[in-house]
Nucleic acid binder design. Structure first.
Lengths: 228, 228
DNA sequence: ACCTGAACACCGTTCAAGT
DNA sequence: ACCTGAACACCGTTCAAGT
């Protein structure tokens, strides 16, 4: 037996299989996501990566859903609120771009971060930072929450599009743009035809930046009116 | 044999099994979604409802993804652009609420409508309507597309939250509000604590309506500045 | 306390064969 | 043209048993 089963000392490569932990499982799941996409995540694929039986995972995560929540939560925790300057526009913009950075750091995991409703309080820190910016600019709590919600909705919507769009929605590749523009022009819908060149084109970085500018403008103007 | 297997004439109830069609499959899928949720959709569960073998579906849909696309596309097609009055604010608001109506008509299917990137041109009609409103208010094509994109992102973000939040995010039920408010107050984050009463509360209809008001305000002010 | 063998009730999809 | 039996390579999860 000793001859057949390898001794612990010279077992499989550095599988880090020393001890199965919740965080090791979470990291393995993220590795699978990055490598093969969110659809490839299964209790079996994750456990395979850890050199362990799938059922062992259940000692550390309640079920697959819990595992995905853990991943989402951890990624959101990577968001470090930039230090605030006190300048409304600059601070909101910085927060928005930091949110995007975190989301796009693992594009295949983005849908988790953007759509999971996290039940724990993790990732409440960025909310706090955003509220702080808004109230320091003169918003009362009720207004701050309302503005925050529209802001977050817009960011989530933009990032979700960016991440799930792939080349479908509009592209930065000239050939794709041409193809799509032709399709749009053949739709027979007058406004779509008129706007086709702009609908077909989608520059991810630029769209996000200008979208954030618009949304931040909006917040600024709302606070300026009420407060000045 | 004839004695055991029922004759075609008196087979199962009116399964509408007469002819398997793409649209019948699509409708069955929607029935499963409405009844048991999006996660319950499988080629097998859908085919079961139709009294047919799962593999038969492949003669009418390419694969499961194609089936879900068909459902999303069809639901989006239910959106009938309200007749436009020419008044920017009223028309945008009406479009937004019609989009919400369609989305929430089948809440369990909402994520399909909101996140699927439809490759066909179905559901381009509402885009056309929105662009029409914007250009009639004086936007040039480029600006119209940019405003449209922010607008859609905000709507998608808000609806996604509304649909996937359930009671997690904030509630209209007083007990839930109290529980959540207490949790938020225990977070130790100063702004979150200060805003807790408003963060804990979430009135779906009201939030959407006021969110739309804000976003529409934003579009109006942007067009007013440029155009007047 | 942690891991797994056996097991259950599922999946999506292909392909050759039937009508 | 349309449907299905047999089959393949998967799923998530439970539970009793092992260390």
């Amino acid at each position: 037996m000793n001859a057949v089963t390898p001794t612990p000392r010279r077992g499989r490569p550095p599988k880090a299989q020393a001890q199965l932990t919740r965080s090791a499982i979470r990291e393995a799941a993220l590795t699978v996501i990055d490598r093969d996409g969110i659809a490839a995540v299964s209790m079996r694929s994750v456990s395979r990566l850890l050199g362990v039986d799938a059922k062992s995972l259940y000692h550390h995560v309640a079920d697959k859903d819990d595992l995905l929540d853990a991943v989402a939560e951890h990624l959101l925790g990577e968001l470090t609120a930039p230090e605030l300057t006190g300048e409304l526009r600059a601070d909101l913009t910085a927060l928005a771009h930091e949110f995007r950075r975190v989301t796009l750091a693992h594009p295949e995991a983005a849908s988790l971060v953007l759509t999971r409703q996290l039940s724990t309080l993790a990732g409440l820190a960025p909310i706090d930072a955003a509220l702080s910016v808004l109230t320091h600019a003169g918003a009362d709590p009720e207004q701050a929450v309302r503005l925050l919600r529209v802001l977050v909705a817009a960011l989530v919507g933009m990032l979700l599009r960016e991440v799930s769009a792939g080349p479908t929605f509009g592209s930065s590749d000239p050939t794709d743009i041409a193809v799509r523009q032709t399709a749009l022009e053949g739709s027979g819908l007058p406004e779509v035809v008129a706007c086709a060149p702009f609908l077909a084109r989608f520059d991810q970085d630029g769209e996000f930046a200008s979208g954030v500018d618009l949304v931040v403008d909006f917040v600024v103007s709302h606070l300026a009116v009420t407060h000045a």
